[in-house]
Amino acid sequence: MAAAEPLAKTMAEPMVVVDDLHVVYRVFGSKSDKGTAATALWRILRRQRRPSVREVHAIRGVSFVANRGDAVGVIGRNGSGKSTLLRAIAGLLPPEQGVVYATGHASLLGVNAALLDDLTGERNVVVCGLAMGMTPREVKDKYQGIVDFSGVGDFINLPMRAYSTGMGSRLRFAIASARSHEVLLIDEALVTGDAEFRVRSRQRIEELRAQAGTVFIVAHSMAQIEETCNRVIWLEKGQIVRAGDDVPGIIDAYLAATGGEPLVREGPKNPLTP
């Protein structure tokens, strides 16, 4: 152990340390509340708490370490806590117990993040770039690159609500990845892109990793996870089932457990690499 430590220091530098993380969030509105003014008044008169507040224990004791240069895939069924885990790492959900340690701020890129819907793509690029902490000069320099990468073309001058889902998420990815993040969290952002964009975004993720960052990816496409990630965390009901570097092994086990189609692998390397 003592001899291995200096080696571990040079080999792997932890960027994200998650220590026994529990996340509980409260949801308002459930089926028992009819939601009319009369029921609300009745509730207040009887001094009841809102019955509709339900606690969801979404992450139940997750621990892991992610190092510099890692691309970590998070897989699991719907509702297994994948997105919640990312939001907790980004510091957007408070841990009920446990701690998430990270270098700097983790940036979360979600497919549902609408940014400023009523503004043009152009203004979104500028405003979001500045919000991420770029200087006006940096934004100016990177503007054309972002627009080109997103491939939205002339739509950049239209409000974002006029965008298709795919265009919106492409632009969001382009904005978020324009700056090198120490920790980038990607939540299903690439699902909607077309094949060409997927290849480009995978290259961009590789670049971000090369720029000494850590990338987390949540996706339901196992092929995509296997292409991109060198580590996988399999979540089930908020707990880690398996985690490790054996990406194909864990994916196969996951697919077998969930009854998914086995992944067809052509050749030694992934099929989309040019």
């Binding site: 939001r87 940036s107 979600g110 993040a113 940014l115 991420m132």
Partner: peptide, 9 residues
């Protein structure tokens, strides 16, 4: 909310 949940500032 979308902006807050997407970006750190």
């Amino acid at each position: 909310l979308p902006l807050i949940r997407a970006l750190h500032f």
